[in-house]
């Protein structure tokens, strides 16, 4: 007898219990990674610039994120008198929530069997999984734009305007790179996309997995660039360019509301890394055996995070017109051409 999939109908108590457990574990891991991503960023950039980075709080500054958290918690919470209060309060939440709920569709390991029922290691498997990610990535912009608009400050407003234009431009190219992955996988469910990538490469080479980075190298390259622009990381951090806009959309924010923007930035980095790993690098599959699936996925995420931090230490910020020109005149045509070529090849091989 083949074991059944665990669902609300065949074992409600176990389903709800395991679902809560998965939610709590995933949320805590993401939050812990966010906290230590700030520490890693300061340490890595410090060492790259021949400094030591934080050293005083704990061994090699390991308690620094906790100290920062406590400090931000006890700071005075300022709301500008001319601000539009409700959007000003809502904006930090509107940017953090979409960033965190996208993790729900990322599969983080192979199925496990609990008391004869199959439990997927994924919070939920939507049949439109990737579109769900795109939808919430699109909604994250509102947080930034509203923060910029409601602060009633010219720097914030400029940051918000820049963020909206940048996000729209790069979302198109990001969506098109994902389309070329769909054309190969013929499914939108992330669980099935990972399963397809665990086969041998092109069905022939058994020493390599069928990761889409081998079939779609251009799409992978474009996705990483557009992903960086979507989450406003250097070299695309125009909405909060310190040297010209003070701190962009979060200039007027203080205390925990500022901390929420910070959390959202790192949560977004984790999400983009997880999506890139899942779509192009096999997700939890390989190079270690599948029983260590979680470690595989975490390793790939950490590698991407290191790459993003490395870029921040290396590249200067691009100019705004360069950013727009690259988005519309280089990345978008390349992504479109990639989709067309993929379409031709898929039809020819059928």
């Amino acid at each position: 007898m083949t074991p059944e999939m665990l669902s609300l109908s065949n074992s409600p108590g176990l389903f709800v219990g395991l679902m809560l457990l998965k939610l709590i574990v995933v949320f805590s891991v993401v939050m812990l990674m966010v906290a230590y991503a700030t520490w890693c960023e300061r340490k890595i950039i410090g060492h790259m610039q021949t400094r030591l980075g934080p050293m005083r709080t704990g061994w090699h500054g390991l308690l620094q994120p906790i100290a920062d958290g406590i400090k931000l918690f006890f700071k005075e919470d300022i709301i500008p008198s001319q601000a539009s209060v409700v959007p000003f309060l809502l904006a930090p939440m509107m940017i953090l929530v979409p960033a965190i709920i996208t993790v729900a569709v990322i599969p983080f390991g192979p199925d496990v069997t609990v008391s004869g029922l199959i439990v997927p290691l994924q919070i939920t498997d939507l049949n439109v999984g990737v579109l769900y990610i795109l939808a919430f990535a699109g909604l994250g912009v509102y947080g930034i734009v509203l923060a910029g608009w409601s602060s009633n400050s010219k720097y914030s407003l400029l940051g918000g305007v820049r963020a909206s234009a940048q996000m729209i431009s790069y979302e198109l190219a990001a969506g098109l790179t994902i389309v070329s992955v769909f054309m190969l996988s013929e499914t939108l469910s992330l669980r099935e996309i990972v399963a397809l990538q665990s086969e041998p490469l092109w069905g022939t080479f058994s020493f390599l997995p069928n990761w889409y980075v081998f079939t779609q190298p251009l799409a992978f390259f474009l996705f990483v660039i557009t992903g960086l622009a979507e989450i406003n990381r250097t070299p695309f951090d125009m909405p909060e360019a310190e040297s010209e806009l003070v701190s962009g959309f979060c200039t007027e924010y203080s205390s925990m509301k500022y901390a929420l923007f910070f959390l959202a930035e790192y949560a977004n980095m984790i999400v983009v890394s997880a999506i890139a790993a899942t779509l192009f690098l096999g997700g939890w599959y390989g190079p270690l055996p599948s029983s260590l699936g979680v470690i595989n996925l975490l390793g790939k995420i950490v590698a991407f995070m290191f790459f993003f931090i490395w870029l921040r230490a290396t590249l200067p910020r691009v100019r705004y017109d360069q950013l727009m020109r690259m988005g519309w005149k280089v990345l978008l045509p390349l992504a479109l051409a990639n989709v067309v070529v993929t379409g031709f090849v898929v039809v020819l091989l059928q």
Binding site: L134, A135, A137, G138, L139, V141, Y142, V145, G148, W149, L157, G160, V161, S164, A165, M167, I168, E171
Partner: peptide, 12 residues
């Protein structure tokens, strides 16, 4: 996600 953000962009 896209069209309304464009509207906001124009308004701002």
């Amino acid at each position: 996600g896209a069209i309304m953000v464009l509207f906001l962009f124009i308004i701002m």
